[in-house]
Nucleic acid binder design. Structure first.
Lengths: 198, 198
DNA sequence: GCCGGTAACTTACTGATGGTAAGTTGCCTT
DNA sequence: AAGGCAACTTACCATCAGTAAGTTACCGGC
């Protein structure tokens, strides 16, 4: 099997096993066995156990960001800032619903090495940057200082991630409900930034 | 040395070492050596490596919650809901500023066992519960449904934790700035809940 | 249609480390 | 003094991350 394809396969299996058993309880042989190869091949491709986790998280975070960006784009150019805002949040919760293992994995970020693996951190920043870019694209937010915009983006992302965790213990809270909670709690503050409207 | 005292000492060292090197890169002997005891004693007291991490996280989260609650209490009974709200958030960021290792540790939660170890999860819930209780104590929020209140609490906590991470790469953003960002982005939504005012 | 090379993959191993069994020391109570 | 328990150690095992040294099979060039 060609390398690229095998790597994808390993990542998929690893994501599942890491999410099921947790990082430290998972052995490289568990993963190798379920893929149908032997350990050294995985080391050849990913370097180390942490490297494998990093690769899994990077892929999951990239998928998450792409899902969000795609929602922003598909909302149409005539949409109001609030519509764009809501669409992104809705896409976030929808993605989590369909990729539970990926999300469990993202929470295992802390398991990876000390000096916050710069790779992981850069991927994380990409999502903040994308959110900031979405804000900045809105003409109504033109005059708002960059730092404030970044702070708001972090607030929204933090709120979404935490609510996603909360939702795993509250099956009665659907995607729409979660979206409503985020929008209604944070939208007011964001709207207050735009000079003209409220 | 009496057990209770030794346990505190071990927790303090472990918190430091885990925060410095990350969970999987630290060995039990690293910790034992820096404490000045041998491995089996730590196992006697904390059961396992994960047990030790759990104990560290539990202590750190408890301290964090207590700092927040204490701020709520000391704000006085005549304070408005907004003042209470702001005081809690301010206390949060102040605590993080003074306990960097504890906070790095809290982010390592994901490193601990599979299906979110019930112990860790219960500690996490304590903070949400405390925040909800603070909301509920406000007469103006009397009629708001419980689920919504819980959702808002999660939003605020998520926003604060994420901003705290962000702040580690933005030294120019002080405690006051971070507090302002959270209050200004989320307060509007919370205020909208109270029937009479806006 | 053989042949050199490389990509995909394996067997067989090592060292580190999480975890444990079986003590040893010393204080504290009776 | 004796008994017992709490604090702590030495010496060990088993597992698992990581590696060295191959082996197989495909693929391009002559």
């Amino acid at each position: 099997m060609p390398r690229a394809q095998r790597e994808e396969q390993i990542l998929t299996v690893a994501e599942l096993v890491f999410a099921e058993n947790g990082y430290s309880a998972t052995t490289m042989e568990d993963i190798a066995e379920r893929v149908g190869v032997t350990k050294p091949l995985i080391y050849e491709y990913f370097g180390s156990k942490e490297g494998l986790l990093s690769a899994c998280i990077t892929r999951a975070r990239t998928q998450l960001r792409e899902a969000t960006e795609s929602a922003w784009e598909s909302v149409g150019p005539t949409a109001s800032l609030e519509e764009v805002f809501r669409a992104g949040i809705h896409a976030f919760f929808t993605f989590i619903d369909g990729h539970a293992t990926a999300f469990v994995l993202i929470q295992q970020e802390g398991a990876v090495a000390s000096q916050a693996s710069p790779l992981i951190e850069s991927i994380r920043e990409q999502q903040s940057a994308a959110t900031v870019a979405a804000f900045r694209a809105a003409p109504s937010l033109a005059g708002v200082p960059e730092t404030l915009l970044e702070g708001y983006a972090e607030v929204v992302i933090g709120a979404c991630e935490r609510l996603a965790v909360w939702r795993t213990t509250r099956p009665d809270v659907g995607v729409e409900d979660a979206t409503d909670i985020v929008v209604s709690s944070v939208w007011g503050g964001l709207a207050a930034l735009v000079p003209s409207a409220g």
